[in-house]
Amino acid sequence: MSSTNETNVRTEGDGQSEPQHHIPPLTPVTFDARELWEDYRNAIEAKAQKHFSMPATFQMVPLRMSVLDIEGTKTYFFKARVPNNKFVNVRLRLSGHAEPRDNQVAVESRASGGLDEEITKIF
C-alpha cells in the first residue's frame, strides 16, 4: 500500500502553499500540440534565449509532451531540445482568459541531458 503527499485542498490568503498536482507521464507530441507549439514559438524561444545560448537559426523542437487540466485551465508541458544536445522543460498555460502570450509561457532555466526525464513539478 502506498501513500501520497498530494492534496486537493485549495487555500487562499492564509499563507499556505498551493495544492500539489501530479503531472502525467510524457508521451509523443500530438499534431494539435505541435500546432499549438508553432503558434507560441516566438514567445517560447524568446524565453529560452534568456537562459540558453542559441544561434539565431536554431529552432526548438518539442519532442515529448504532457497535458494537465485543472479546473478548465489546460497546461501543456513539453520536453524540447536546446543546443549542445540538452533538453529543457517548457510550460504553456491556456486559461481561456485574455492574457499576453509572454504570461502563458514559461521555460525552465535548467537543461538536462535526458529526453525521458519526467517533468515532476509545475514551474
Rank of each mutant, 00 (worst) to 15 (best):
P28I: 13
L26I: 05
P24G: 02
F31T: 07
T7K: 03
N89R: 13
Q59E: 15
R110C: 03
E118L: 11
G113R: 12
M65Q: 14
I44H: 04
E38C: 15
M1R: 04
H97Q: 01
K74C: 07
A106D: 10
S3H: 07
F58G: 07
D102R: 02
R64Y: 13
R110E: 03
R81S: 03
F78K: 14
R110T: 13
Q16C: 06
L92V: 01
I119F: 02
N5V: 13
F52D: 05
M1I: 13
V107A: 00
E45M: 08
A48F: 00
V29E: 04
R93W: 09
Q49C: 01
I44V: 08
F78Q: 10
A106N: 06
R10C: 07
E108V: 05
F52V: 11
F87H: 05
D14C: 09
V82E: 02
K47P: 00
L115P: 10
E12F: 12
D69Y: 01
G15Q: 11
D14P: 11
K74T: 14
T75V: 08
L94E: 01
N5Y: 02
A48V: 01
D102T: 14
R10T: 04
H97S: 06
A111N: 12
P19V: 10
M1V: 15
G113K: 14
G13W: 11
T75F: 01
A46K: 14
F58V: 04
I119E: 09
K86R: 15
R110N: 08
A33C: 11
G96A: 15
T73S: 14
T120F: 11
E99D: 00
V88H: 03
T57G: 13
L115W: 04
E12P: 05
I23H: 07
